[in-house]
């Protein structure tokens, strides 16, 4: 579904991503793990067209994405859950979710999806009228995921969903991610918490200094002594 070939990202003269190649098949969840500064987020930002890649190609369902402006991605069926949540702080939870459906105009279906998304997040249903800026970090992350779901994507790009959250919240968020994945969503998950990411995903890529160094099924990566030593704190 998503094929990335030789993707390069540089900031000034510094190469953050040095020509990486990977792919995501339809219906699977793929984890991109690595230490801080390995280039994971830069990769995702380049995929989401938030920054201009220095080279390489990103093909999604056979279509080249590199020439598309960012706002067109939603129409193609790609939704980004930005790093650090990125909810609209002064809008209510409900308004945030509706913004996710901004590019759609099938009113009846939007209402149905709204019910569906709120079904995933009973917490948000309770706080539907509260302004998003006053929600807890975990609730904001739920809201960001919910908003992405409201655009009815085929592919979801998740940028560090566990960042800055209490462990119990992280568990909850990952449960939801797993549920969404089981419903058939294709997911690319960028995550520092390697253990969790590998537990929920089918395949994983390990990034180190802008390059992909290891790739395998998530189960095997979890068992790999080198990965365990470097990323799982053993």
């Amino acid at each position: 579904m998503l094929e990335v070939t030789g993707l390069r990202v540089s900031y000034g003269g510094i190469q953050a991503v040095r020509g990486i190649t990977f792919h995501v098949n339809e219906g699977e969840m793929v984890a991109l793990i690595g230490a801080n500064g390995a280039g994971k987020s830069s990769t995702l930002r380049a995929l989401a067209r938030l920054l201009e890649p220095a080279g390489g190609s990103v093909r999604y369902r056979g279509k080249e994405l590199v020439s598309l402006p960012p706002y067109r991605l939603v129409g193609e069926g790609i939704a980004l859950v930005p790093e650090g949540r990125g909810v609209f702080p002064r809008m209510s939870s409900l308004e945030n979710l509706r913004m996710g459906a901004y590019a759609r105009n099938d009113k009846a279906e939007i209402e149905r999806d709204l019910e569906h998304v709120l079904g995933h997040f009973p917490r948000l249903k309770e706080r539907a009228q509260q302004t998003a800026g006053t929600l807890s970090g975990g609730e904001q992350q739920m809201l960001a995921i919910g908003r992405a779901l409201m655009s009815k994507p085929r592919l979801m790009l998740l940028d560090e969903p566990s960042m800055g959250l209490a462990p119990i919240m992280v568990q909850k968020i990952f449960e939801v991610i797993r549920t969404v994945s089981l419903e058939g969503m294709t997911i690319l998950l960028v995550e520092q918490n390697a253990k969790l990411a590998l537990e929920v995903s089918q395949r994983g890529y390990v990034m180190e200094s802008g390059e992909i160094t290891v790739t395998d099924e998530s189960k095997k990566l979890l068992a790999d002594p080198k990965v365990r030593a470097a990323y799982l704190g053993e």
Binding site: L50, P70, Y71, V74, V87, Y102
Partner: peptide
């Protein structure tokens, strides 16, 4: 209006606005 909501979204978080499919430019 729709435009009004798009403005509010841009005002509050431009990246998220783009991610929602708003032509921010």
């Amino acid at each position: 209006s729709r435009v009004g909501r798009a403005w509010q979204a841009i005002r509050e978080d431009e990246v998220a606005a783009k991610a929602c499919g708003i032509n921010t430019r």
